[in-house]
Amino acid sequence: MTLEKVDFDFPSSWLQKCDALEDGACFTAGALSLDGLASRMAEFVKSPFVSQYLLVALGTLVHQQRVEKGLSIDKLATDAEVDVGDLSLLEANGKNFLGIESRKIEHIEFEPRQIFNLAKVLDLPVIALNKLAGLTAANDSDLYGEAVRFAASSKGTDHLSSHERNVLKDFIRLLAKE
């Protein structure tokens, strides 16, 4: 899809045309009740689309926390008994937030034991990690929204900026409440 360069403008000639259009007009659009929106949100957070975002957030989280703890990817793979190739793919997903739109996200399936080990080695809350990995249902739009924001804030480098470090801490604090 080619994005069009658009001037965000409101010319006087067009505004004058509106004066005639608006005579006696009402403008309200959208349902008054939020029930429909809430149920669509509930369906949405269970969708494969959301799983991709959660997996990307997991990749970002594992990568950043590994860097924070000064672990090499080989060391983490060994300690957590996870295939180093899977771990590399997971972290690569985390560095590729925008790849979601171009379908470049690798789907990786982890066993519960591996997620438990990763949580233990990286000092992360296991319940939330299971949700991010898709091992347990994440019927929680707050977690999803925070995960998206967290993943989007990462620059994907091997050196965390102070901003990234703060976002990481906040995200882990939120995960601990899950």
Binding site: E4, D7, F8, F10, L15, C18
Partner: peptide, 17 residues
């Protein structure tokens, strides 16, 4: 006046973007 029209125009411009 013009508020509703302006918001609708803004939506169209975002759609183009």
């Amino acid at each position: 006046s013009r508020v509703g029209s302006i918001l609708l125009r803004a939506a169209i411009l975002v759609s183009k973007q």
